[in-house]
Design a protein around this nucleic acid. Sequence first.
DNA 1: TAGTGGTCTAGACCACCTC
DNA 2: AGGTGGTCTAGACCACTAC
Lengths: 255, 255
Amino acid sequence: MADHASRRLDQEIERDGPRAIYLQVAERLSADIRQRLVPGDRLPPESELSARFAVNRHTLRHAIDLLEVQGVLERRRGLGTYVLDPPVSYPLHAQARFSDNITAAGRTGTGRLLAATCEPAPAEVAAALKLRGGNTVWRLTTLREIEEAPVSIIDHWLPLAPFPSLAAEYRGGSLHALLAARFGIKPLRRSTAVSAALPLAAVARQLRMSPGHPVLRLRTLNVDAATGSPFEYAVSCIRADRLELVIDHDEPAHA
Amino acid sequence: MADHASRRLDQEIERDGPRAIYLQVAERLSADIRQRLVPGDRLPPESELSARFAVNRHTLRHAIDLLEVQGVLERRRGLGTYVLDPPVSYPLHAQARFSDNITAAGRTGTGRLLAATCEPAPAEVAAALKLRGGNTVWRLTTLREIEEAPVSIIDHWLPLAPFPSLAAEYRGGSLHALLAARFGIKPLRRSTAVSAALPLAAVARQLRMSPGHPVLRLRTLNVDAATGSPFEYAVSCIRADRLELVIDHDEPAHA
DNA sequence: TAGTGGTCTAGACCACCTC
DNA sequence: AGGTGGTCTAGACCACTAC
């Protein structure tokens, strides 16, 4: 119920208080964004904001750093700082499929192939796929976007033998849909490990993230429902500010 | 296979290259830590490191910021900067229980009660627990540690009626074990939402994190296996640098 | 060219911990 | 008291985008 005058007082920054200035600025910015701005809006430039708060530009940048890591803002060099959409829910159950998830949320999702190569399987991949040492595997790198905004970049590792023509056939869209239609696979997510990680510089660039900001890192093992044998090991880097994972736990059959 | 001379060359920092100095410093520090240090070791002070790399202390700090967010290092004001343990795996299946998970990993885990109050249920809690409006619920705040290091802080929300004496009986340890022993509940994790978030200042302090660093935020709904009705809604803030979530997907019964 | 964010340096002072 | 990390300021220059 703050009137004009008292709200201004609330907004005063305490320079000798125990709370760091950049934290106070971050809170005020956060409140201002919630109250006055909508996703897509551009923030005033750093020079203007630092003048408005009467702090140094570095201090203001420190405050914006927090909101950027939090997924509230996105900086675009040369352009400005923009308010982001809230994260999209991403159900992570055994049959989860990216395209279906996004469509269900009423958004437009795309999957694009960035690279397809044959490489010797790294130890982690060989172990997960239960390969003998020295095996060569497919490595497909895909980029996924929601409404033009990149949300994840995924390395898919698949054994060569069952999918000899994979690179020739897959161009984009749902990889699992192709595997189902063309190779008769019934994909089933077996296990997922979630951690926070710093993306490689190249990955960060493709996700249009500032360097140094963490992503959710998912390591997923997919098996064929028919045979139970693993057919894909995937390492995903997900912008945690754009996607929220949702896990629905099914009670195991034996319980 | 780098000998002394060539390794030194590898380590040179390119001041006019396209890669930012702080990123190069972060990579060199990261490699040095992997090769020469073990968890618990202390890094040289910032003044010494900035001199060694011939960069400004602010630039060095920027590099350390990255490793801190990544969970490689932990800064302790007045003490120094220390190498952290790698994250502990935390299985997130329907029957997952913190204490069992940690014990299984060969670590010592503790749970401590920070606060127990009765509060009106926030909308999110009331909806999850399927309460009528205006209901008062238990709010238990617990802190969990592994080997003396705080890893998560959890707000547990429970309805009052089934657990009239809860606050009097629970002091620490496994909350779910108490609910099972004392109230006959068979806890079952129903759904979990995972997102990245910035912790409140108070939470960050209790987790001994630097302000501005993100945590994994889990919102969990637990039901009683016997009746299927929800008995607990929990909001966890987890140090993503200390715990890694692992999800084993059980095939649903109908598949 | 003008405006935006990104980086680096420099120096000062503070808060916290140990002794 | 001395050493550590934490914060703030100041000014400079660069990289990218749009026009």
